[in-house]
């Protein structure tokens, strides 16, 4: 238990450090003291604007999006008892992106600001339902991944189609954004738009800890312990849709965070979902904040997409997992 608490503290410290780094690093190259003073006291016009209107929303969104992705990855893995479940790989993120793109291109989002997160949320919800239906309640690894590939491909094609047919010449270039994700030039508006849904979704997912703990012993045992599986399932669907949907609506689809983070943390905090869920939220936040600082250091004048870095780390990891599973199955 003390070890678990130590790890939580360490993760919390890491997230705080990276959050601060995200506030202090940017193309404007501001001084450390100037920027912190401007952020806290509101003195120094241009610097205040940069700190409060450009960097603060970026850092807050990095924190939230990362937490959402880490947490939903851990929750999906716990529920499906499958280490390959992750919102990006099983198509939840790309369906959410399709929903968001539809809301933007039909003009719904312009007429009614909440249409953007709501449409993304609906997209995410549909794909979680589809995945659970296609992969079955036990979620066999192969069925899950294949269903995820099919849903991702379909949603990705839909997104590309909508953006290609758009009357707006800039729309086509945004296919990459919706598939890779980015936090560049977000504003507080996006924080207000996405944060309530992300926080609500995370709150729902965090309640699943005990139920998922029981589920590690098998469905019958869990039911015998008083876990209502149907309710657990619906809370998972709703929580994932809220959290991932809203995060994609404001930041695009950032992949692999939900895969890598629970796997790195599982040996440290133990396999119990009740401990893994909060730790994965912190770990996810750290990973996305670190990636977002890295994209600004690697290419400060360009908008290098977040998903490029998370995939560079995550995809080899994914291959490693498949390799390990192959040995287990053989």
């Amino acid at each position: 238990m003390t070890r678990g608490r130590g790890i939580t503290l360490a993760l919390g410290g890491l997230v705080m450090g990276l959050f601060l780094a995200s506030l202090l690093i940017g193309p404007a190259g501001l001084g450390l003291r100037d920027s912190l003073r401007a952020l806290v006291t509101g003195q120094g016009e241009a610097v205040v604007l940069i700190m409060r209107e450009i960097r603060l929303p970026r850092a807050v969104l990095g924190l939230l999006v990362g937490a959402v992705l880490g947490l939903s990855g851990a929750a999906l893995q716990g529920f499906l008892r499958n280490p390959l479940a992750e919102p990006g790989l099983i198509g939840v993120s790309s369906t959410a992106a399709l929903g968001a793109v539809l809301a933007l291109q039909t003009g719904l989002a312009a007429a009614f600001a909440l249409a953007l997160p709501l449409a993304a949320l609906a997209g995410a919800g549909v794909s979680v339902l589809l995945i659970l239906a296609l992969a079955g309640p036990r979620g066999g690894a192969l069925a899950l991944i294949l269903a995820g590939i099919a849903i991702s491909a379909l949603a990705g094609a839909g997104t590309s189609l909508v953006l290609n047919l758009s009357a707006n010449p800039f729309a086509v270039t945004e296919i990459v954004y919706w598939m890779m994700g980015s936090l560049a030039d977000r504003s507080m508006l996006h924080v207000w738009l996405g944060a309530p849904f992300m926080l609500a979704g995370m709150a729902l997912l965090l309640t699943l800890g005990r139920g998922l703990d029981a589920l590690t012993l098998g469905e019958d045992a869990a039911q015998a312990m008083g876990v209502r599986l149907t309710r657990l399932r619906w809370v998972l669907i709703l929580g994932t849709a809220l959290a991932v949907g809203a995060s994609v609506a404001v930041a695009g689809a950032v992949g692999f965070v939900g895969l890598v983070v629970p796997h790195v943390l599982r040996p440290l905090v133990g396999a119990m979902p009740s401990r893994l869920l909060p730790a994965s939220a912190l770990g996810g936040a750290a990973m996305v904040l670190a990636a977002d600082v890295a994209v600004r250091l690697i290419a400060p004048e360009q908008d290098l997409k977040l998903g490029v870095l998370t995939a560079l780390v995550g995809a080899p990891f994914f291959l490693h997992l498949i390799w390990r599973m192959r040995k287990v199955e053989a």
Binding site: A110, S166, N168, Y177, D185
Partner: peptide
């Protein structure tokens, strides 16, 4: 242009 995009946001 019509059709809101993130680029123009």
């Amino acid at each position: 242009y019509p059709g809101a995009t993130r680029s123009e946001e």
